[in-house]
Design a protein around this nucleic acid. Structure first.
Length: 655
DNA sequence: ATTAGGG
DNA sequence: CCCTAAT
């Protein structure tokens, strides 16, 4: 079984044929794309069939290969012979010449995770004589660089500076508050997974889970304010410089990083060639093929033929991506210099690949740090599509916010926008962010109006979709903030908003929106049977959020919630300062309740609630104690207030 | 406008 | 989470 990482370059017409004729059957040769369009670099894992065909690897295989590449026990080196190029590499299109040789190649000769490294190595040198020379150091830059931050689930931490993928065993100083995913049981991993992604998973592969989790954590963290970092499956605290370095540098696959001659080389092979879209497999990427195949084990047992990733798999990837896109935007704003790079290489993932009349959407997956391209449902916001839209409603001077409110209430608090002509008209007119922006400054006293409405309706039924928005109403937003919101929102959302607005008045549209909302996972509308029609949206705290919170408290001190909100949770539109406070309260409670002696409570406590990893709880307690004891030498005035509080908390916690 | 604390 | 009182 041979696997190859293809470097997917450009999509053109009949690549398949070209590929074959380029001699792909020679498993040890690599091809260089005639047309080299080096951004964004996409790698795709394929399986090399006996007859020379290239078949997209299934995700199972992907996992396998991943573990091969990553597993500590499997240190497979390919001796690099820098400075040499390989004859069999067709370099015709590689404008950059030797130094820029774009193809790096290697083989994976085993499908067994426990493969003996030495044997593997040996086999490689037998079977792949031209392999070693083909590994010029210039490639290693690349192979190293596409293991970006999320890859730190293994070794790669400092982006461009640490390129070792397979070897090097960092000596981890046992830092406080670290999370060692390795020590978690499957069940715990599942819980952590849920905490991280807010969703259950049935996958039972430890490695996969760990990688997913660490990836999710890393990606969802706002690096600029978070000092946690995943390292070798451990969550450790890091200096901020390293983090930003990681985020910024690691994506820069196009940046020359300098020679890495002496670095061990990973068993990654790249093969420049035009993207070959797997025949039938990707044709309908956004439909689940069969709903029962979610079970990971079943999948692995099933024939490993051409199988597209499962729906769940795809969604998870999409989710990670959408999550991280927010943070990345933020990052971009903060570090314009580097941001561009990361944006380029990581955001521009989705590509439309026209093929035989169909359009196939693919994306780069950062699985395990290796870019793998998988088909992807363009995540058309299954959830709460109209965050902006509601904002529009509320800030429209015409007072239609009220109308929408009423309508919504009447319709059972589920129906969305009314078919109010005025509404759609206005919205159509304001289809661009600029317009919207402008409109909300209309001095019509809208905020007051809305507030009144809310009061009238019982102070609970206001249709705000999102806690923040409603608060904004009360507290009259700041212009800057809103502007930022619109900028920060992915294009998709904008469009969706506009579309929704335009679609108003059509029952079909309405239905559509409603269903998409009801089926949504996080907007929980709870129509209280008795008294009123209130609804509640409980957004489960994800692990990364908790981490951020802890981080924020450690930085700014407990009690300075608005600060923490602003600085650490800027990208989370929900989560008000009050939320943070509440959460912290809970955390304190949990930390003090649990820590004393790992009571039976802990194990039995597998309620639906998110299990906060012990390390974090420890950290919480530490902070609580610290901040309650240590006199604030730093900024004297403000911390004093929080000190008092923490003393109190601590006491209650212990007694 | 924010924060603490109760429900 | 929501609300209110107190700063």
């Amino acid at each position: 079984m041979k696997f190859i990482f293809l470097r997917v370059v450009e999509v053109e017409g009949n690549d398949e044929a070209k590929l074959k004729e380029c001699g792909i059957r020679n498993s040890t040769s690599s091809l260089s794309s005639p047309k080299q369009i080096s951004d964004p670099v996409v790698y795709k894992l394929v399986r090399l069939e006996g007859d020379g065909r290239i078949v997209p690897a299934t995700d199972d295989e992907l996992m396998e290969v991943e573990s091969l590449l990553i597993d500590d026990k499997c240190e497979m080196h390919i001796v690099a012979d820098p400075g040499q190029t390989v004859g069999c590499i067709s370099n015709e299109g590689s404008s950059s010449g030797i130094a820029q040789l774009e193809s790096l190649e290697g083989l994976l000769q085993s499908r067994n995770k426990e493969a003996d490294p030495d044997k593997l190595n040996a086999r490689l040198e037998e079977t792949a004589p031209s392999l070693a020379p083909s590994l010029s150091e210039s490639h290693f830059n690349q192979s190293g660089s596409f293991g970006e931050c999320s890859h730190s689930s293994d070794k790669l931490v400092a982006g461009g500076s640490t390129l070792s993928v397979v070897t090097s065993k960092p000596d981890f100083s046992k830092l406080k508050g670290e999370i060692c995913l390795d020590n978690l049981s499957i069940k715990e991993l599942h819980e952590t997974f849920k905490a991280t992604f807010g969703r259950e998973t049935t996958v039972k592969d430890k490695q996969w889970l760990k990688r997913r989790i660490s990836m999710g954590l890393t990606n969802s963290c706002d690096v600029s304010v978070t000092s946690f970092i995943i390292k070798d499956n451990k969550l450790v605290k890091k200096g901020n410089e390293e983090i930003s370095n990681c985020m910024d540098g690691s994506y820069a696959e196009d940046l020359p990083i300098g020679n890495q001659k002496d670095l061990p080389t990973s068993l990654v092979s790249q093969l420049d060639y035009h993207q070959v879209v797997p025949e039938k497999r990707l044709e309908n990427p956004n439909l689940d093929e069969n709903s029962g195949s979610d079970d990971h084990q079943t999948e692995q047992r099933a024939a490993k033929r051409v199988r597209k990733p499962t729906k769940r798999y795809i969604e998870e990837l999409s989710e990670v991506e959408s999550k991280e896109s927010n943070g990345r935007l933020m990052n971009l704003a903060k570090n314009p210099g580097h941001g561009l790079i990361s944006l380029k290489s990581r955001v521009g993932l989705v590509r439309n690949v026209p093929l035989g009349g169909r359009t196939v959407v693919t994306r780069l997956d950062s699985l395990g740090g290796y870019g793998i391209q998988v088909p992807c449902v363009s995540r058309v916001r299954r959830s709460r599509p109209r965050k902006n839209f509601m904002a529009l409603l509320k800030f429209n001077p015409s007072g239609m916010g009220m109308e929408a409110t009423l309508a919504k209430k009447v319709l059972g608090d589920h129906s969305f926008p009314t078919d109010d002509g005025k509404e759609s008209r206005v919205l159509k007119a304001s289809s661009t962010p600029e317009h919207v922006h402008h409109q909300k400054f209309n001095p019509s006293g809208m905020g007051m109006e809305a507030t009144l409405v809310k009061k009238v309706l019982g102070d609970h039924s206001f249709p705000t979709d999102d806690g923040k928005e409603s608060r904004v109403l009360k507290a009259s937003s700041t212009p800057k903030h809103f502007h930022h919101q619109f900028i920060g929102v992915p294009e998709k959302d904008k469009q969706f908003s506009v579309m929704s607005a335009i679609g108003l008045g059509h029952n079909t549209e309405l239905k559509c929106i409603n269903s998409s909302r009801d089926s949504d996972d996080n907007v929980v509308t709870v129509p209280t049977p008795k008294g009123g029609i209130r609804r509640k949206h409980h957004r489960a705290w994800t692990l990364s959020e908790v981490m951020k919170l802890v981080e924020g408290v450690s930085r700014y001190g407990a009690g300075r919630w608005s600060e923490i909100k602003r600085l650490a949770f800027a990208s989370y539109s929900y989560r008000t300062s009050v939320d943070l406070k509440d959460k912290w309260r809970n955390l304190l409670k949990a930390s003090f309740a649990q820590t004393p002696q790992d009571n039976g409570m802990n194990s039995r406590k597998s309620t639906g609630a998110m299990p906060i990893p012990a390390p974090i709880l420890l950290k919480v307690r530490e902070l609580a104690e610290m901040q309650s004891q240590v006199l604030p030498n730093l900024s004297s005035t403000k911390i004093a207030g929080s000190t008092r509080k923490n003393v109190h908390e601590k006491r209650t916690g212990f007694l």
